[in-house]
């Protein structure tokens, strides 16, 4: 399967949809560099669930050795990293 950063972004936004609705944000309005933790959308272990959802959706296993954990926090860098790995 061809995994694009856009497709990963869509899965992440889907996972975040309820939290976005709670915080009154539209999913289109999520900037590439929005810090998901500072914005109160997830906590660190919530990130595990998003990783699990992305891996399940694309049937991939991602190796995070090369990723600075801080880059997990924003949707743009995260999506691009997954797409590069897939």
């Amino acid at each position: 399967m061809n995994v694009t950063a856009e497709a990963v972004r869509a899965v992440v936004l889907d996972e975040l949809a309820p939290a976005l609705a709670d915080s009154g944000r539209a999913s289109e309005g999520v900037a590439d560099d929005l810090d998901l933790i500072d914005a109160g959308l997830i906590d660190s272990l919530g990130m595990l669930e998003i990783i699990a959802a992305v891996e399940a959706r694309f049937a991939i296993e991602v190796d995070f050795e090369e990723l600075e954990p801080e880059r997990l926090r924003a949707i743009g860098p995260f999506s691009r990293f997954i797409a590069e790995q897939a």
Binding site: S44, L45, E65, E66, L67, P69
Partner: peptide
Amino acid sequence: PSVAIFMRRLGA
């Protein structure tokens, strides 16, 4: 243990 599992996933 979930935190340790997370860290292992991140290569930490």
